[in-house]
């Protein structure tokens, strides 16, 4: 994160002068730094390598309600920075016309390290995924062509697009690319836990937190694996299906019965900020999540075998253990990420 800030500040100073004496900013590439304790990115960064102007454009778009049909719902509406880009306190979000969605807004962070997006893996492309919420009638209810028409009316966008892309066009393709570049740069890897793991200043964990970490590694880290805290797989963790929603999860996308009720394992980074929890936001606190794992797991279709290791389904934990784990999970909060001005845009 620091390095990104450093680079960006250097680049913002660079400019060149054309014959008319106007400053023309050169669109400089941005360095994508892989944190030392992270695995390799899953997405190919070079497909849509972030540049300064592309990033700026993507950020502006992310915060722009014009991407929705009635101009009220931007990406940032449901993905708020202060909550690690989730919808604070909302189990479901409301989109245009106050229509309510069926799933909890997931965190937009470390996107380049994921292979598939959304709880059901509807998209595997960082560039393409924005299409889904844009088209969803209960979210933004818009289409790409209309958005482009709106953006073309705005000289600020016209200028940004021409700076960010070689073909200078205000096009849906470029728009998606810009959003993709913005999301690529949203790396969260500077929590207290990270500093601990990387032996950096400020990286100390208390005894309880360390105990929590040990318990986490034994009981949780098979699914919430690596320092990304997810194995990016689709699993059924035994949540009793909500009869009102009957959300089939991964099966919605693949159509296979063996994918029923499987949802993507979310990253637990910044989890203290992203309540409520689960794909439908049914748990308001980490305590209730751990209560569920200890005694609430049900044997629904395709229940993950990892939750069938003990006499009772799930993960047996006593209260003291739960508290230690919760303490540990709180160390995954990355204050820098949620307050980084680079990821904010005042509209």
């Amino acid at each position: 994160m620091k390095k990104i800030v450093y680079f960006l500040s250097i680049l913002s100073v660079l400019s060149c002068q054309d014959d008319n004496g106007e400053y023309i900013e050169i669109d400089q590439p941005l360095d994508f730094i892989i944190p030392a304790n992270f695995p390799e990115p899953v997405q190919d960064i070079s497909y849509n390598a972030p540049t300064q102007k592309g990033f700026e454009l993507g950020r502006k778009l992310f915060y722009d309600g014009r991407l929705s049909r009635d101009g009220t719902v931007s990406c940032s509406f449901c993905h708020e920075q202060a909550s690690a880009f989730t919808h604070h306190g909302h189990d479901f979000s409301h989109g245009v016309d106050n229509l309510e969605g069926l799933r909890n807004a997931p965190a937009v962070q470390n996107m380049a390290f994921q292979g598939e997006y959304f709880y059901d893996g509807a998209s595997s492309s960082l560039e393409m995924l924005s299409i889904v919420p844009i088209h969803n009638p209960v979210e933004m209810d818009e289409n790409l062509e209309s958005i482009v028409l709106k953006l073309k009316q705005d000289p600020v966008y016209v200028k940004l697009f021409s700076q960010a892309f070689a073909n200078k066009e205000v096009s849906s393709g470029n728009m998606l690319k810009a959003l993709g570049q913005f999301m690529t740069m949203m790396v969260s890897a500077n929590s207290r836990y990270d500093k601990y793991v990387r032996n950096e200043a400020g990286g100390t964990l208390s005894t309880q937190e360390l105990q929590g970490r040990a318990l986490f590694q034994t009981n949780c880290a098979t699914c919430h694996a690596t320092d990304l805290f997810t194995d990016n797989k689709f699993r059924n963790n035994g949540l009793p299906p909500n009869p009102n929603l009957n959300d089939l999860g991964r099966e919605t996308v693949t159509g296979f019965a063996y994918d029923r009720y499987k949802f993507k394992v979310p990253s637990l980074r910044n989890v203290a900020l992203t309540a409520p929890y689960m794909h439908d936001g049914r748990f308001g606190s980490l305590q209730s999540v751990l209560n569920f794992y200890a005694s609430g797991v049900q044997n629904t279709q395709n229940l993950d075998p990892l939750l069938q290791q003990h006499p009772t389904l799930g993960i047996p934990l006593n209260q003291q253990e739960k508290e230690a784990i919760i303490a540990f999970l709180k160390t995954l909060t990355d204050e820098e990420f949620v307050s980084n001005p680079l990821f904010y845009f005042r509209t």
Binding site: N48, E127, N143, E145, G173
Partner: peptide
């Protein structure tokens, strides 16, 4: 992605050949 094939994507969208 969409941008590598912009014009085809637009054509496909206009012909109801994209998923949303």
């Amino acid at each position: 992605g969409e941008t590598a094939q912009q014009s085809f994507w637009d054509l496909a969208f206009a012909n109801n050949m994209t998923w949303t």
